[in-house]
Design a protein around this nucleic acid. Sequence first.
DNA 1: CTTCCACTGGAAGATCTGGCCT
DNA 2: AGGCCAGATCTTCCAGTGGAAG
Length: 423
Amino acid sequence: MSNSLMGMFERDQQVFADATPLDDSYEPEDIRERDDELEKYQRALQPIIDNRPTSNIFLYGKTGTGKTVATKFMLSHLESDAATYDDVELSTIWVSCENLSSSYQVAVALVNELRLGQGKDRISTTGYSQQRVFDLLYDELDSLGGTVVIVLDEIDNIGQSDDILYGLPRARSNDYVEDVRPVIVGISNDFQFRENLSPKVKDTLAEKEILFPPYDANQLRSILHPRAEKAFHDDVLEDDVVPLCAAFAAQDTGSARQAIRLLREAGEIAQAEEADAVTGDFVRDAQDELEKNQLYQGMQELTTQGHAVLCALAYHQALDEVPVRSRDLYDRYIKICERLDADSVSERRVRDHLSDMNMLGLISVYERNEGLSAGRYHEYELDVPLKAVLDVLLSTSRFEDVANIIQSTAEDNNLLQSNLSNY
DNA sequence: CTTCCACTGGAAGATCTGGCCT
DNA sequence: AGGCCAGATCTTCCAGTGGAAG
């Protein structure tokens, strides 16, 4: 890109015609490859229109298998159809439980969502007792009346804390609410979720289940094609691009979201490089780019202690002393904390941080066992380029100085170059 | 086959933060 | 002001583990 002031932001759309079909929030007018699931879904919601008792509905399937899109689709039809019958009173509320880890937090979110519609003040996310929040929730529901469809997206985040799934369906029979029929639509990424519910919830939560299997490559192609056609100018996409996105995503997660993101990223890379066509190579670049972003984000979102542990491991990496066993890593960690004048945590807690980072794919763990002479222990090393870790640490003011030291140590040992090519 | 090292990882509960209620 | 609440983070304790050495 040129450095002159003129034209820095000139419109530059040789690739995209209209990228909105590739947004995460885009709602297609028809849903492909999910006919059976939609039919089941429709049957499960039908009783609402018929004013009959309605089961709760649970959708199971991994991310990007169409659960959320299908639900938005069904609800908008349900709402418009319900409006044509005078005797059907219907409202819907939607809460994404993505960042909610307990029933308490879900209840607060529901109360706030309900209050939003009426211009009332939001309630705080802490401070109340659980029963207090549930009472507030019942009050709000009561003032709505009729059938209330409550969508709890990513409900599996609440884990074992499932009181809300016990309380809501029984609100009416327990006389907490008068004239409201709550219908819960739970959306879960975790097939195990139902198994792990507490027995009292499992026994009494009348429900219909709908499974959303991962998409295969053919289905993903069929999903991508119409979007690609709208999003890109004619003849910009090479023939292998959509199949390649579909194949990558099918192989990895079977997620339509992943496939669509790949396609968009590939387009953006092509645009940035001022190419006049999107080729398969851009898809491969996009794959790398998305993976990298996810790791960066994972690293950035660690707590201060997490960063300190990561820092200790990076130091060992820079000294070429990897993999490190946990006690050596812990010594280093303590020294780093002293230098930073920061609190240090117990060895046990450091192991927890390490196992979190392992889950995120940031580090590798090897189990070692030297029997009677040296026992059983774990060794760790970075699974992401040292350069990437340092980038994150350098941008975290507290770790800037230490990161600089690590960086020069790594340079002395020539440990940055080999990793640089990817980043 | 038994011993036993050096951890690992589960469990329970303490501490701290931010916020409500009277 | 002081008690209470929920959640996140951390500490303390300790039974359990797997394989080389004996």
